[in-house]
Amino acid sequence: MKGGNMMTETVFFNPGNSLGNFQDYNEAVRSAKIYRQKHNELEDANVIVVNGKHNDSYDIFLKDHAEKNNDDNEPYTIKKQI
């Protein structure tokens, strides 16, 4: 998913695991990059920016926190992987 075209992928997260919620996509990407830089131990983990199921905001999550779909999780669409 780095660079080039990205296929749409739906992932499930518990909203309580969000590292941040933003109304502006660019702000979400900037915050995800800052988080990634501050946490160098995340060598293989990815911080991702996702669009919520209502497409009205952007959240950032650690991709490793993706979960299987159950009643507590919401579907998100990956917009950018950092």
Rank of each mutant, 00 (worst) to 15 (best):
L62Y: 00
G4M: 06
T77C: 13
D56V: 00
N40R: 10
V49R: 09
V47S: 02
P75M: 00
H39T: 02
N51W: 05
E41K: 10
F22I: 01
N46Q: 12
P15N: 02
P15M: 00
H65F: 08
N70Y: 06
G20L: 09
F13A: 00
V47K: 07
N70R: 06
S57C: 14
S57D: 04
K38C: 09
K80D: 10
F22D: 03
V29T: 04
A45W: 09
M6G: 10
N14L: 10
K80W: 09
N14Q: 12
P15G: 10
N5M: 06
Q81A: 05
Q81K: 13
V50C: 15
K80E: 13
D72E: 15
F61N: 02
M1H: 15
I78Y: 09
F22A: 01
N26V: 03
V11D: 07
K53E: 15
L19V: 03
K68M: 07
E43G: 10
T10R: 14
Q81V: 12
D64F: 06
N73E: 09
A28Y: 05
D59A: 11
Y35M: 03
E67I: 03
N55D: 07
I60S: 09
E67M: 15
K80L: 04
R30N: 14
N46K: 14
N17S: 11
K2E: 15
D56F: 00
N46E: 04
I60Q: 11
E43C: 04
Y25L: 02
N69T: 01
I60Y: 08
D59L: 06
M1V: 02
N5E: 08
N51P: 04
A28F: 07
V29D: 13
D56E: 13
S18Q: 14
